[in-house]
């Protein structure tokens, strides 16, 4: 009887209370989970760039990011599928995950032959298929292969860089590329120093004057970089060469002079200090010696 009453009592009040508390506890995390699911996937963005390096390697760079106001956040560890299209055929090149900066880089060795007609533009694709958080996005660049080369000419102490640019015709033969904007740079510590901009002529040639007073390394070497930048047709193409046109800068480790600010003091200062101190302490010890004599005499008397 008693038990029944207790039971009833429990059943009526405490039991429901506990049940309610448990419900609240478990429902809170559940709800927050629900919220995230309700959230819409974020719009992702992609930049796809094409670079042809000096050794003929082609690099496709896909930068994957999201934008919130003025803040750009890279999407990390996202698979990006690269493919190339020429004529009618499409070839998948590979799937690469983005790094912590949201970059996925694909390197195409110069020995690697892209299928199709060289004379026509290749269409490179990069595709990110998205997931629960991000909306899929893709990028595309249309690139015609450009052959960039330069040589150095020195006439009457005037130094010029003679640049040739060629592209493939529809018959797969090399023809001059004209009206291409070409930048000349010299490599410096933090970035590239521009030395000139020119457009190629009908023969696919142009020249950039090289400044005669640019410092190089210890033997006058410096790195010249000729670039086609952000071209709608050719993408980024660059050619790098080390040349000996710089003014040699002596990097020899000169010994720091004896100076007030250097490790070693000027000689006269050291000598002066030693002489003054020696003079003072000599007299001091002379006086002590006299005192020693006083003491000795005192002992004798005893």
């Amino acid at each position: 009887m008693k038990i029944q009453i207790i039971n009833k009592y429990l059943f009526n009040k405490v039991y429901y209370k506990i049940l309610f508390i448990l419900f609240v506890i478990y429902s809170v995390p559940a709800r927050s989970e629900d919220n995230s699911k309700i959230n819409k996937p974020i719009k992702s963005r992609m930049y796809l760039t094409y670079d042809k390096l000096t050794d003929g390697t082609k690099v496709l760079t896909a930068k994957l990011f999201t934008k919130d106001g003025k803040i750009f956040t890279p999407i990390v560890n996202a698979p990006v599928c690269f493919s190339v299209e020429n004529d009618t055929s499409t070839l998948e090149l590979g799937i690469i995950s983005t790094d912590k900066e949201g970059l996925a880089l694909l390197y195409l060795s110069k020995h690697y032959q892209l299928p199709g007609n060289l004379g026509r533009a290749y269409i490179f694709h990069a595709e990110y298929s998205g997931n629960d958080e991000y909306i899929p996005v893709d990028g595309q660049v249309e690139i015609k292969d450009l052959l960039l080369d330069f040589k150095l000419a020195e006439k009457d102490s005037e130094k010029t860089i003679e640049i040739t640019v060629n592209e493939y015709s529809s018959e797969d033969t090399l023809v001059p590329a004209y009206d291409v904007e070409i930048y000349g740079y010299v490599k410096r510590l933090y970035s590239l120093l521009e030395i000139g901009v020119e457009y190629s002529d009908d023969l696919g040639m142009t020249s950039i004057e090289f400044p005669g007073d640019l410092p190089g390394d210890s033997i006058g070497n410096l790195t010249v970089i000729i670039k086609v930048e952000d071209s709608d047709i050719y993408g980024n193409v660059e050619k790098i060469k080390d040349i000996n046109w710089g003014i040699p800068v002596s990097y020899k480790e000169t010994k720091t002079p004896r100076a007030l600010w250097a490790d070693e003091a000027p000689l006269w200062m050291i000598i002066a200090v030693i002489v003054i101190l020696a003079g003072a302490w000599f007299n001091f010890f002379l006086a002590i010696f006299k005192l020693y004599k006083v003491r000795k005499l005192g002992k004798i008397r005893k």
């Binding site: 007299n283 001091f284 002379l286 006086a287 006299k290 005192l291 004599k293 006083v294 005499l297």
Partner: peptide, 9 residues
């Protein structure tokens, strides 16, 4: 001697 020592000092 003491005077000498004093004078030197």
């Amino acid at each position: 001697y003491l005077n000498q020592a004093l004078d030197i000092m």
